[in-house]
Simulated scan of single mutants.
Amino acid sequence: MRGVLALAGVYNLAWGAWAVLLPERSFANSGMQRPDQPLHYPELWQCIGMIVGVYGVGYLIAASDPARHWPVVLVGFLGKFFGPVGLAYGVLTGRSSAEGLLTCVPNDLIWWAPFVLTLRHAYRSRGGRE
């Protein structure tokens, strides 16, 4: 659990930095239609990068004691769950490109099982039952 959360932290910090420093590139790689040429609102994508990076800091903190810092893991899981759900809705309604769903695999989907298992461990370590 500690290793997975540390890896998630480093990954999120790296992805967040990439989005902040190269907003036009990360916007294009997401499969999203750019609002204009050149990208006139890089701050929107940079803000997403900042949020992802802040999650990375939280995951690194949670890695020190996953059971104790389970709320950080829960908030992270919720973001990693609802992000793809929202994007899938956008694809189904024609407002988003299906290509963008590819970014959900490394950014979200691969973390679902480890985060759920970490939350399960935290629940059990606090005397919870199944």
Rank of each mutant, 00 (worst) to 15 (best):
V10N: 03
D36G: 08
V85I: 10
F115H: 08
A122Y: 04
V4F: 14
E130W: 12
H69N: 01
A14N: 06
Y11K: 04
L78E: 13
S64N: 06
G3S: 14
D36H: 00
S97N: 11
V105I: 15
F27R: 10
R120N: 09
S26T: 15
N107D: 14
A98K: 09
L87G: 00
A88P: 01
W18G: 00
F81K: 02
F27N: 02
D65K: 11
R34W: 01
Q37C: 00
S96D: 13
I110F: 02
G79Y: 05
R120W: 13
V91P: 04
A6N: 04
V72H: 06
R25I: 13
P66C: 05
W15S: 05
G79P: 00
P42M: 07
P71W: 00
G49C: 06
V72P: 01
G76V: 03
R124Q: 14
G127N: 05
Q37K: 06
R25H: 13
G94M: 04
G56I: 01
Q46P: 00
E130G: 08
I48T: 04
L109V: 15
V72M: 07
L44R: 01
V73R: 02
H69F: 12
I110Q: 03
W112G: 09
L7C: 11
V75Q: 11
L21M: 10
M1E: 07
G16A: 09
F82Q: 06
G31N: 04
A14L: 15
M50W: 13
H121F: 09
P23V: 06
V4W: 14
D108H: 08
G76M: 07
L22F: 14
Y59F: 15
Q33H: 11
F82S: 07
R129H: 09
G31V: 09
E130V: 13
V105M: 12
G100K: 11
P38K: 05
F81L: 15
G128L: 05
R2M: 12
S125W: 10
V4H: 13
I61Y: 09
Q46D: 05
G100I: 07
L60R: 01
T93V: 14
H40K: 07
R68V: 12
I48N: 03
Y11D: 02
N12R: 04
A19I: 02
G16D: 03
V54F: 11
W18Y: 11
A19C: 11
L101K: 05
V85C: 06
V10R: 05
L102C: 10
P42I: 01
T93C: 10
M50P: 00
R68F: 12
E43K: 08
I51C: 11
A98Q: 03
N29A: 15
I48L: 13
G3F: 10
R68H: 07
Y11F: 15
P35G: 05
V10E: 05
I48W: 07
Y55H: 08
C104R: 08
L5H: 04
E99I: 10
E24S: 15
G94K: 01
R68G: 09
G49T: 06
R95L: 10
R2S: 15
S26P: 03
G49I: 06
V72E: 04
F82E: 09
A67D: 13
L101H: 04
R126I: 00
H69D: 02
E99Y: 10
W111Q: 05
Y41N: 09
N12Q: 06
W15N: 06
E130N: 06
Y55P: 04
L74N: 03
C47R: 12
P35V: 07
L92G: 10
